[in-house]
Write a protein that binds this DNA or RNA. Structure first.
Lengths: 226, 226
DNA sequence: CGACGAGTTGACTTCTCTCAATGAAGGTGG
DNA sequence: CCACCTTCATTGAGAGAAGTCAACTCGTCG
């Protein structure tokens, strides 16, 4: 249950072990750690000691209301950095969606790097700005799109971000998708069924998370761009 | 109609005219400009030449869908900085909610300042992070709160941000509030009527934008915190 | 093998939207 | 200064989209 606390006693190597490559825009660190499915990586209001990069797997970050309603603000896939959007204290909870390996660096070290290296600084700003842009786009979705548009937008976003290929394998459950899109899991399921019935998407494997975009053009019309 | 284009040919004074005070965390510039109610300050996809600070009045920033649905991402009140959250190109439209005076600085100058001054850099990051935090909180509202909770949260936010006093004078219309909260103006109106009927708020003037929070404690219970 | 979790689907409910009417406020021009 | 027009806000009635509750299927896993 609280293995994660033990987990987080793990310490990455010190300052000299990481750097930032301008070419890849990724924080590079030799420090890695793996979380099992559903494990909490950090909790809301905890001090933000580390910044993370997903090496493999997927992470969800979310906020809760007191009665349990959940809003997932983002899914972080391989390559993505998370935990940076926070200040001294984490502003939401991060959990492993599937078994996930992350690289981590001390936040303090990063900030020290930013003091002396303008490139590191610029990258920090860029990453924060990217997060902000994603949040803005998502606000438009949450505030003004209907269920079908939300699900279409989600599929297109995931298709764009996941490894290229004819099909995609979604790591997250229908409930996760629902909490990301601000609807219920039943509504997600109905929207997917409708898209399947109209031959816009197809289900591939026997679990229902392998999806192929049969008609991307039509899917984009469901999404409805600005 | 296109006066704003003329407006924007106005040029702020050069680099030497602005700086950033660490004590107030505000960009200081002698360059000012005033927009009439409803005027566009900048449009989505326009090059982001300036960063703005509201001196007086209020600004809304929003995104549109092709069919006209609008999502206001934020209201910027006196003292607030906006246009920074953007990259080289503005990611949304900014309009004056009421007659509004802004200070402005060239974006390029700011970036030059960031190169040489770590304090400026830190403030830039802080401001972007603040925007991000607001967006995250708003995603929770848009994705998971009901109409009454949204309106209650809005009133508490405005009360917190506007000049202290027993009552507040909202600069924006019901439609603006609705597009900020992801509901319709009728639903906003009904929620306000209900809060008034329950003596949680009161209307003061003869226009319906002067509001007093009669029972802040109860209003907070309607909002429902995390 | 059985329990459990995930997903789908149906029936019904509910919340918000849509459409419409009304009244008040504010701006404009004669 | 006032009549007129437009905009804004409120309120009601009905429609509709999404939520809730529940049943059922299908893998997975102990």
């Amino acid at each position: 249950m609280f293995v994660r606390i033990t987990d987080r006693t793990y310490r990455p190597n010190s300052l000299s072990d990481f750097g930032m490559t301008t070419s890849t825009n990724q924080i590079v660190s030799l420090s890695e750690f793996t979380y099992k499915k559903g494990r909490e990586i950090f909790g809301e209001k905890e001090p933000a000691e580390f910044v993370f990069q997903v090496k493999q797997g997927a992470v969800r970050t979310y906020k809760l209301l007191s009665d349990g309603r959940r809003q997932i603000s983002a899914f972080h896939l391989a390559g993505d950095i998370f935990g940076l959007e926070n200040g001294a204290v984490h502003r939401f909870t991060a959990e492993a969606v599937t078994q996930t390996t992350v690289r981590l660096v001390r936040r303090q070290s990063l900030e020290a790097g930013a003091e002396t290296d303008a490139v590191v600084t610029r990258n920090l700003i860029t990453m924060t700005t990217d997060n902000l842009q994603h949040a803005e786009t998502h606000m438009l979705l949450l505030g003004r799109k209907n269920a079908l548009e939300r699900v279409a937008a989600f599929l297109l976003e995931m298709d764009r971000r996941m490894v290229p290929g004819s099909q995609m394998s979604l790591p997250m459950s229908r409930r996760d998708i629902a909490d990301y899109l601000g609807i219920t899991l039943e509504t997600v399921s109905r929207a997917l069924s409708r898209l399947k019935a109209e031959n816009v998407i197809g289900f591939v494997g026997e679990n229902h998370r392998e999806i192929v975009l049969t008609d991307r053009i039509r899917l984009e019309t469901f999404d409805m761009p600005a």
